[in-house]
Write a protein that binds this DNA or RNA. Sequence first.
DNA 1: TGGATGACCAGATTCGAAATTTGGTCATCC
DNA 2: GGATGACCAAATTTCGAATCTGGTCATCCA
Lengths: 234, 234
Amino acid sequence: MTLDRSAAVPQADHERAERILAAARELLLAWGYKRVTVDEIARRARIGKGTVYLHWKTKQLLFAELLRRELHKALGVFAAGIREDPAAALPSQVVRQVFLQQTRDPVTRAIHAGDSEILGVLAITPAGRPVIQELGFHILLARLVEVWRAHGLVAVTAPAADQVYTIDAVLTGFITGGIAVPAEDFRPDRRADLLAHTIKAALETSATPDEAALRAAAHDVLDALDAAQGALVT
Amino acid sequence: MTLDRSAAVPQADHERAERILAAARELLLAWGYKRVTVDEIARRARIGKGTVYLHWKTKQLLFAELLRRELHKALGVFAAGIREDPAAALPSQVVRQVFLQQTRDPVTRAIHAGDSEILGVLAITPAGRPVIQELGFHILLARLVEVWRAHGLVAVTAPAADQVYTIDAVLTGFITGGIAVPAEDFRPDRRADLLAHTIKAALETSATPDEAALRAAAHDVLDALDAAQGALVT
DNA sequence: TGGATGACCAGATTCGAAATTTGGTCATCC
DNA sequence: GGATGACCAAATTTCGAATCTGGTCATCCA
């Protein structure tokens, strides 16, 4: 059964890579990038250390793929939500979901916050920029604003660049949590509501979009998410 | 002339304290709290090191007063702006001024951002909270929201606590600068405009306040600023 | 015979004790 | 009697030795 074998080997390879990534993810959250050793990853994946290097050239590249996958997965979740309900494609709702996603998942939160306690050297790219930029978040955001404008969901009176910057700053502020006010007093979904309200008030057009327009917009938003996901595969 | 003397000595004391604080401020910005030595402060103020300890019990207390004074001064600037034009008492305008103030002045920015690179151990109080809380910023903010609501400048449909949190988060986001989008592309006053617009849209009532209401509100805002300043004197 | 492995190596990191620095005091001086 | 700087203990820095770890590759099976 040569066919079985030649098919089985990549299959085994793939499953092994998954095990390695899972072990890496666990250890990343428990110890942070710096303290995680390749040896320990291999031990958890129950393989030899050298085997890790059959999959990735370096420790950094292994974790880079891990981060890309996490973001890829998160984008998939957003897309699913929009497919279920086109209203989730509205700016305020998208931002709301991004916020909640980051509240739930420590890895994506670390990515967006550039948390060097967890990400270590990964927090900043060789070019000296936050990882989140490297992963194309700002490109996606710019594209989304474009789509929203095209479909009349956000006002076109202000420059698109301003709106992109505003969304980014406001989102960052809510994720960081304010500084002067203790943020623990507010549950995540209450904070998410305040964030959504702020984005809606600052950017969205006052007119309620009709069903058809919403569907069309959702379609383009899904395209943008797809494109962003595509840019994340190795 | 015993009168002259007894008046002259505290006068000299006061002037000397100012020299010490000025030297400390310079060094703080140049080197950061940790690297600044009391010896160097004394040298710059052209006095003996022991003399510094005639004014403050410890290095920390010296810098604590410096920070209080900087914030005190900043509040004075805000108040002056409002006295000149009551419209400066509107939420969006106050926040705008706070943002610009922090863009201009590295010390108050460090305070608000909790920049431990500059503030060292001062960034976090013994109780483990950001300095900005210790300095009563959140109390002032809460009071301002109260005033604005009382004068119908912000909607009373939402809870005041939510509004306080929103202002804090948005302001923090703009001061931090977004993460995904390179912030250098925007000049400070453009960012200030975007911030003001966001606050206005998210919180202010749509109706333009009449002159009289604005004056009355400005009066109470000035009172709140005064109270905050009062809380900052030793 | 080719994929898996872990002993191995060089460079990075950590450790720790000695050396230096610095916040704070106080005997001395003007 | 207010100002000072030598002085001290505690904190910090230094730097070489010891340890650790990313990455390699000769060896070993299946």
